[in-house]
Write a protein that binds this DNA or RNA. Structure first.
Lengths: 185, 185
DNA sequence: GCCCCAGACGCAAAGGGTTCGCTTTAAGGT
DNA sequence: ACCTTAAAGCGAACCCTTTGCGTCTGGGGC
């Protein structure tokens, strides 16, 4: 059990900070548990006991970094809102840093909880955009539909086909999910 | 440079075989480089030099296992062909073993080549199904469209949302990509 | 406000995985 | 048949990982 205000919390914060610092100083591949422990002012065994593995620790830190830090902008209409969000999402996730975080989040993930959290972040953002549009009286697709037809294709290509991803692709996906019926010849 | 018929090829085959054997005997998590090396009749340093890392080696083996071993069945019509293929794909990939292979393939993948190979396998199968349908005179969607709207959503859910995946989901995705226009109220 | 106890951390040693320089072998070309 | 070169074998040093035990923090009960 993690005690929110006690020593455990201090150790966790210190270790997470050490990971972020060292990752930016030495590069992600140079990280080792003893190195992180030293920077955090902690013994390696503490990290091994709490996280079990460097990959699990990196997964934890990655999920923190994948949490969106801004709410989707309001451009007055659903197509503009969703397009802007998708473009920003793709831009962040397709970058080398974004890819590394996604891989780390998926990697050291014993029960799939971290990956599920990432998906939940995107779902929240989309739900916010769709709810706002519905409040304006616009017809909106389902959140699941947007995830299937916009988020999933972007993620698939980020993970499996690193080439040829740009804002135009995000625009096409959004246009596809918002098109009521076959106006994409 | 890998010499196809020489000692390098024998070593590679021997190491790959050792990984498969030990993975089924001891479990995937019990694998270590020295263990694999001993079973393969090779020194550990050989594996480290060639693959650099246990994860890279596992990625190599995983891609081999993700290669489809059967050609998609011919059911006489595109909807039936594509549905059958998607159901089988989802079934194989969503299983615990399939998930483990996908993770391994993505993880130890320095340049993204292995992941790209996985995607290429699926694209080949889909292209075969679509080409056959086009030969019958049926109207067919683009391969890229099928990947975006069928393969990508399945993969996304396999990786990020381990729950609630069944054949019905695959059927819905295929129905969606084959529907000419908004007949999914 | 004090005491108690479960859980977490520090410490240190043993074991095993990883790296690296050097040597040896084998495949392919001349 | 010889030469060139890339890859594998070998061994030692280094570092990461694991584990048991003692100590300490901090929350809950009295």
């Amino acid at each position: 059990m993690v005690r929110p205000g006690g020593r455990s919390a201090r150790v966790q914060a210190s270790v997470h900070a050490a990971v972020r610092e060292l990752a930016s100083e030495l590069g992600r591949d140079a990280l080792t548990v003893p190195l992180v422990a030293q920077r955090a002012g902690v013994t390696p065994s503490t990290i091994y006991r709490r996280w079990g593995d460097l990959q699990v620790l990196l997964s934890d830190v990655a999920v923190e970094r994948l949490r969106p830090d801004t709410t989707p902008g309001d451009h007055g209409a659903l197509p503009a809102d969703l397009t802007a969000w998708a473009e920003q999402f793709l831009d962040e996730m397709a970058s080398p840093a974004g890819r590394a975080y996604i891989r780390d989040a998926l990697l050291g993930d014993p029960d799939g909880g971290n990956a599920g959290q990432c998906s939940a972040y995107a779902a929240e953002q989309i739900d916010l955009v769709l709810t706002r549009a519905a409040g304006r009286g616009e017809r909106t697709p389902d959140v699941e539909t947007v995830i299937d037809q916009v988020v999933a294709p972007m993620m698939y290509r980020i993970l499996f086909r690193p080439d040829g991803l740009d804002a135009a692709y995000a625009q096409r996906l959004v246009a596809g999910v918002l098109a009521p019926a076959g106006d994409t010849p």
